[in-house]
Computed example of a mutant assay.
Amino acid sequence: MKDTNSTTPRTPYQGPPKRSSQDSDPTSRSRDGRSAPEGPRLNSAIRALQVRVVGEDGEMIGVLSRKEALDRAMEVGLDLVEVSPDADPPVCKILDYGKHKYHEQKKLAAARKKQKVVEIKEIKVRPVTDENDYQVKLRAMKRFIEEGNKVKVVLRFKGREISHHELGLKVLERIKVDMDLFSKVELDPKFEGRQMIMMLGPK
């Protein structure tokens, strides 16, 4: 006979389903509803009940409720952007966030272009160098320096030339004199194995 008093074990209550971080911390949204997770809070994502509002032309409108501020932005077809969330109350500005973000990205790109990366250009010479070859390399050094780069002059000895290192030093000293108007010596001539090096930089 079947035991009618037996019951099926109940599964312990796990609590309500967990909300994702995106649900608990709404991201900024533009007028078309797209998220802007790395930007400021926009429109309905603004949490403060009262905000200090700056108009689209830069005029200070004053402290409004969040709803009033959103209504003002919607009336002119723009976004309400929280620009100073730590202020009391937070400061919001009425603007076209898409256009604003585009201009900010252009400014950032322009600033990066101005940040010149200094390169080290290498020029190789010999203890005995043909005058025409010397002048060609001298012009190259001047061009590199004028472009804001550094020049590493490498003078390599072959065979028994190493026993006449004064010839190499003489060539490097000549380069120092000929480049004096354009550059400064950042590293005086020194030996590295079977070669001597010297570093020049812009004045």
Rank of each mutant, 00 (worst) to 15 (best):
D71P: 00
E56C: 06
P90L: 04
V53W: 01
G62A: 08
L70A: 04
D88Q: 14
M74V: 13
Q50A: 10
G33C: 06
G55C: 03
G15T: 05
I46E: 00
S20C: 05
A73F: 00
D79A: 04
A45M: 04
V81Q: 02
D23T: 12
R19T: 07
L42Q: 02
L64H: 07
P17H: 03
D86V: 09
K67M: 12
D86H: 13
V53Y: 01
E56W: 12
P85T: 06
L64S: 02
K67F: 08
P90K: 04
A73V: 00
K18D: 14
P90R: 02
S20P: 01
P26I: 09
L80T: 06
I46L: 01
A69C: 02
E56A: 11
R19E: 11
R72M: 15
D23H: 14
E56P: 14
R34N: 06
G39W: 08
R52H: 14
G39P: 10
D23K: 14
V91K: 09
V53E: 03
R31S: 06
E59K: 09
D86C: 04
E38W: 05
P89L: 03
I61P: 08
G55R: 03
A69L: 01
E59I: 08
P40Y: 00
R72V: 06
R19L: 15
P40T: 05
L64F: 13
M60C: 08
Y13F: 15
R52F: 14
L78H: 05
P90Q: 04
L70W: 00
E82G: 07
P40L: 01
G55S: 14
R19F: 06
R34A: 08
S28V: 03
L78N: 05
V76Q: 13
D88A: 11
D71T: 09
V76N: 11
V81N: 02
N43G: 01
D32E: 12
G39D: 14
S65D: 12
E59R: 12
R41P: 00
Q50G: 02
L42I: 03
G15A: 05
V54M: 11
P12K: 02
D79H: 03
V51K: 00
A73G: 05
E75L: 15
G55K: 04
L49R: 13
S35C: 02
L64R: 12
R41Y: 10
